Simulated scan of single mutants.
Amino acid sequence: MLPELLQGVDAGGLLIIQDSAGCSGRHLLKSFINAALNREEAVHVIGFEVSEEELRDGSQGSPTQRLHFHNAFSDPLGWTDHPAFTVHQFNLEELTHLVKQTSHPKAATTLVIDSLSWILRHVSPSAVCKTLQQLKKGGAVRATIGLLHADMHQRGTVGSICHLATSVITVAPGAKGDEAVAKITKRSKSGKVIQEEEIFNIKEDLTVMVQSKASHTGPKQPGPEEQETDPTANLTFNLRLSDTEREAKEKLALPFVFSKAKKTALLHLGPGSGRILYEPDANDDYDQEDPDDDLDV
């Protein structure tokens, strides 16, 4: 699925590359930038963590004239008089203005955020999620790609960001030094979720080579270590019924359940049943027109 995503993120899509201290995802991020430039798209990179020179390293063969780097690396918090871009400018209005003033109006635009973790350290997760959701609705940018360091944030924050994404790539170390494992989750517009794991490496020209993959299109089955322990496994008594015991239980008549014959006997009067008969005598002052005449009301 990596080659498919490198061919282009769907319009309005949000791709999150999730990494950790054990395996960096920046090389894969640069591969996505390189692929977008080769598709003749305009790429706007908001760089918080590396300089423009480091980001462009390895992209000499790409048409970098369409690569626009917005320097948030030198002064991310706006401590100087004229900062290029600060973390507090991460909102839809500022990003739209930034992209439109430096892009050709007819060119498809991809916004790259390097990285979301830097922004989440200084802006509330709800505000970041709001901006990402607004970017997904289209407008100035066609698609958004963000790098997220998952081990720097709480699980709920990472989950909220990934929940907004149309595709999530989680990178992990591979068996060999030059290999990495990409765990990909892609959500289609119909709601279908596809998961795959691919082993890949990145060449010097930022080309991604997939070595092997294992598809998981269905729900993930828990492994032996993830299966819950049976609480009835080591009991000294049996909580389960055998087939014979279950059959005897089903045939047992419960005392509070009436059979059809018992209901019939209770509802129909048989011989010898008693009745109460009332015959008024002459002393009874009973007026059929006013039965309550004897009441003092």
Rank of each mutant, 00 (worst) to 15 (best):
E52M: 04
F258C: 15
G61Y: 05
D81T: 12
A127G: 03
D290V: 10
L266F: 10
Q134I: 07
E204K: 09
D10T: 14
H44C: 09
L254G: 06
D284E: 07
H163M: 13
P173T: 03
P271L: 10
P83E: 05
D243P: 00
D293T: 12
K213S: 13
E245H: 00
E197F: 00
G174V: 00
I184F: 06
A11H: 08
R121W: 13
E247P: 00
T102C: 10
Q60S: 13
A42E: 10
G138H: 12
V171G: 02
F69D: 01
I161K: 06
N234Y: 05
D205P: 01
L241F: 06
E198D: 02
G177R: 08
L164Q: 10
L252F: 11
A214S: 08
E289T: 14
R66E: 09
E196F: 03
T86E: 07
E250D: 15
E179S: 01
I194D: 06
E289D: 12
V43W: 04
F258T: 14
H68P: 02
N34I: 06
N91P: 01
K220S: 13
N71H: 11
G156F: 06
L267M: 15
V50M: 14
E279T: 12
D296R: 13
F200P: 03
L135G: 04
D19P: 02
S160K: 13
G156P: 03
R275I: 12
G272T: 07
E54P: 01
H163L: 13
T185K: 13
E53A: 15
S117K: 05
S215F: 04
K30T: 05
T64Y: 00
G8Y: 07
C162Y: 04
P231E: 11
F237Q: 00
F237H: 01
T207N: 12
E196Y: 03
K183F: 04
D10N: 11
F200T: 00
E228V: 15
R275S: 15
Q60D: 13
L254W: 15
V45P: 00
R187N: 11
E179V: 00
G274Y: 10
H44E: 09
P83M: 05
I194Q: 06
E54I: 05
F48S: 02
V141L: 07
S24C: 15
V50Y: 11
R240E: 05
T232G: 06
L15V: 07
D230W: 02
V208P: 00
H216P: 02
K176D: 01
K176C: 02
Q134T: 11
S59K: 09
T232R: 13
Q89T: 02
P125R: 13
E228F: 14
G12P: 01
G159Y: 08
P3K: 05
A175H: 07
P76F: 05
I113R: 02
S103E: 09
